[in-house]
Simulated assay, not measured.
Amino acid sequence: MSDTALNWKTLSSEYVYKDNWLTARKDKCETPDGKIIEDYYVLEYTDWATALPITEDGKIILVKQYRHALGETSIELPGGCIDDTDATIEDGIRRELLEETGYAFEKVHYLGRTSANPSTNANLMHTFVATGGKKVQDQHLDANEQIEIMEVSWEEFLQLVDEKRIVQSMHMTAIFYALRYLDKIKFV
């Protein structure tokens, strides 16, 4: 069976809410066996990017910020939305890293993409490893951002992972991909 054999056909689509950070649409769909699905809701966001950033002296850069939906201050990887002004996804993650941390990176390696929830979200998270980071400026944060920078050793970073202190699931996926790429974990 082909990868598209299970795809639904969109019969109609209507936007029910549009705002800067959230767009919701209601689709009417038909399954391959002819079943009609009424009122299937899809959340549209721009694509996101995140990176495991490593400084030129081998430290991992993490960010700490309050996340209102969870009601907690969270330890995360830096990253954010890919903007219309970004020529490429790599340009977007380089911009986000510079804005949030003040660091520019010698190399940025694409690890892959992941989805927060493919049943409801129409966007992707693109993941990277950034190496050779050097502090070149102060943070340039958005009006609603308050971000504390954490520079940690590999030992401290792995302890945070072991203690499950990083709860953002897509960031944990990025961390897993990065650790595999950097040959820090192996499969038997």
Results as ranks from 00 to 15, higher is better:
E155Q: 12
K107I: 00
L77Q: 07
T101L: 10
L6E: 12
H140T: 08
D91G: 06
I61E: 07
A87T: 03
L179Y: 02
F105D: 02
D162C: 01
I37P: 04
K64P: 02
G79E: 05
F105V: 00
Y110G: 03
Y181K: 00
G79Y: 09
I166A: 05
Y41K: 08
N123F: 06
M1T: 11
Y41V: 12
D27F: 06
L124N: 14
L141I: 07
W154F: 10
E156H: 07
F187R: 01
Q159H: 13
Y110C: 05
R67E: 12
V42T: 15
T73P: 01
D83E: 12
N144V: 10
D86R: 10
W8L: 12
G71A: 03
D84N: 13
D19L: 01
M125D: 10
A122C: 08
S2C: 08
C81N: 15
H171K: 00
Y103P: 07
E163P: 02
I175T: 04
E14F: 04
L62H: 11
K59N: 11
F128D: 02
H171G: 15
A122H: 11
G80P: 08
F157K: 01
K135M: 13
T127M: 15
N121C: 13
V152T: 02
G112K: 06
E96K: 05
D91P: 02
Q146S: 11
D47M: 06
I93W: 10
V108L: 07
S119E: 12
M1V: 12
I37A: 05
N20D: 12
A5T: 14
R180G: 03
A51V: 07
A24Y: 14
Y177D: 06
T50G: 09
I36Y: 07
Y45W: 11
G71R: 00
K186M: 01
N121L: 14
E96A: 09
D27A: 02
I147V: 13
G132F: 11
T131D: 03
I185K: 00
L97P: 09
Y110M: 05
P53K: 02
G102F: 10
K134R: 14
T85I: 08
A51K: 01
E72Y: 09
T127K: 01
T101D: 10
D83T: 02
G80E: 03
H171Y: 08
D27K: 08
G71F: 03
I54Y: 09
I36T: 10
I75M: 08
S153R: 02
D57R: 07
T127A: 11
K107C: 03
A174V: 05
A69N: 14
A87G: 04
G58S: 08
V136Y: 05
A104M: 09
M170L: 13
L179C: 10
K28M: 13
V152G: 04
C81K: 15
R165L: 15
D162W: 08
W154N: 03
W8H: 12
K107Y: 10
R67G: 06
E96T: 02
S119I: 00
I36V: 15
T131C: 02
P32Y: 07
E156W: 06
G58F: 04
L111I: 11
G58T: 05
D39G: 13
G80N: 04
H68W: 07
V42G: 05
T120P: 01
D19N: 14
L6R: 08
T4Y: 15
W48H: 13
G34T: 07
A104L: 10
S115N: 12
V161H: 04
F105R: 04
T88H: 06
T4D: 14
T114C: 14
I82Y: 10
R94D: 00
L97H: 14
K26V: 15
